[in-house]
Computed example of a mutant assay.
Amino acid sequence: MKKNSLILALLLITAGISAQEEYKDIKNEKFEYTAEQQHEVVQFDIDDVRFKRKPKNIILFIGDGMGAAQVFAGITANGGELNIQNMPFVGFSKTQSADNYVTDSAAGGTALSSGKKTTNGTIGLDAYGNKATTILEYAERNEKATGLVSTSAITHATPASFIAHQPSRNMYEQIAGDFMNTDIDLFIGGGADFFMKRVDGRDLLQELRDKGYRTAYNMQEIEPVTEGKLAVLTAVGHNAGYRDRGDMLTEATTKAIEVLSNADSKGFFLMVEGSQIDWGGHQNDASYNTGEVLDMDKAVGEAIKFAINDRRTLIIVTADHETGGMSVNEGDMSIGYIKAAYTTGDHTGIMVPVFAIGPGAEEFTGIYENTEIFEKMYKLFKFKEKDKDQ
């Protein structure tokens, strides 16, 4: 009987892993896209904005799989402009992992979050298996509020790399368990099953409630919430694609900024992931790719509005890697039309862009390793070097 139970548990785990990664299968190649709807871009004169010298808050956007071609596809589809495009400081990040010219999201995310290169598939550990303390964890140590937002499961590789420490990105239940070892103030994303329907029988949502979190399953439930600890699991696994999930990412980003800025803290750190740009690249689907870029850009616009008024908030927009080897071969900005081509259904090794606005944004120009993004954030937050884990 025990043997049968173990086999069943292993089958459930394997099925869960397969379901979480099935977006990597090329199903429908779609090389053309005409914008279904264009959004307004925040209008401002950067010369009129007087940012403080150093940031109190940092908002890091990661467009998973977003290279320069994906950004330009978004610019074209939105009639020639994006919120991202209006960020005045631009650089490039090299994305190679510790063991591979082409990184995956686990190693790429860990480099961004901790400043440590690691092996593909590894979450929050360095290349030797040692814990890599993340910018989110350093922010907590320094009495800042912290948050994560994602259109994937919140246990997926990129958000996981900011809060978890596991040898495999596929250890979703263990990653969910790592959330319980932190004092993160807010997280919004999919993955409810990894908190509730677990092989070990734990109900992590109840444990979160016992720790003082308000839990919810959609954005509507938290509309009146303006402060306190929040755990919002918006899907049992991953969230739906941009056509079906509505403005979840923009709403989640806006709510996260509101709640974290109201926290009794010394500022905040927030990571927001546009996860499914990557999935469009894996599927060689230009409509999926571009629609997800536009969706994240709307969230970026809301963050820029906050930063302009707050003047103490640094916003960084970058990627963990490029996916698909995308190129934009034809386009028409007047109608938001693009025609793309792809060289692969996987990640590539090319540099990815970094955009920044706010106090310290000038630090992000040039070409540098992805680990430098962590180092720059650590320096700008004025965390003491003697407190950094070696």
Rank of each mutant, 00 (worst) to 15 (best):
A192S: 14
E173Y: 07
M171N: 15
A153D: 14
K52P: 12
G109Q: 07
A106W: 01
M66W: 01
I188K: 00
Q174T: 14
L60K: 00
T158M: 06
G63W: 06
G189A: 07
I154C: 04
F195S: 03
L82Y: 01
T122C: 10
S152C: 15
A139D: 10
G189T: 02
T133L: 11
L136S: 08
M171D: 15
E137D: 04
T155K: 00
F51C: 03
Q166E: 13
E143P: 00
G190Y: 10
Q70G: 11
V90R: 09
T103H: 03
L60P: 05
G115Y: 07
S161K: 03
F187Y: 14
T118L: 12
N120M: 04
D185C: 10
L112E: 06
G189L: 04
Y172P: 10
F92A: 08
G80Y: 13
P88F: 01
E143V: 04
T133K: 06
E140S: 08
A111K: 05
K116W: 11
F61H: 03
L60E: 00
G177W: 04
R198F: 08
L82V: 01
S150G: 10
I59R: 00
L148G: 01
G80T: 07
G91R: 01
D178C: 01
A145T: 09
Y172N: 10
K117F: 15
K144H: 09
Y172V: 04
I175N: 00
T103C: 05
T151I: 11
Q166C: 05
F51D: 12
L125E: 10
M180W: 06
G190S: 02
T119Q: 14
F61G: 01
A132Q: 07
S161D: 12
G79F: 10
S161W: 05
I163N: 06
I154K: 00
T158H: 04
G124R: 02
D185V: 06
P55N: 00
S152D: 05
S97C: 00
I123Q: 07
L60M: 13
A98T: 01
S168W: 08
K117W: 13
K131W: 11
A192H: 07
N170R: 13
A160P: 04
L136G: 11
A192C: 01
A160S: 05
K144F: 12
D193S: 13
R169Y: 13
L136W: 05
S93P: 06
H156I: 05
G67S: 08
M171P: 02
G91F: 12
G91L: 05
I135P: 12
N181H: 13
N170D: 15
K54E: 15
S168G: 04
G115R: 01
S152N: 11
A77P: 03
K116H: 08
N100I: 07
T118N: 01
F89Y: 14
T103S: 11
A98D: 03
R53Y: 09
M180S: 12
L60N: 01
I58P: 02
R169I: 14
N170T: 15
D185P: 02
Q85R: 04
F92I: 02
A98G: 01
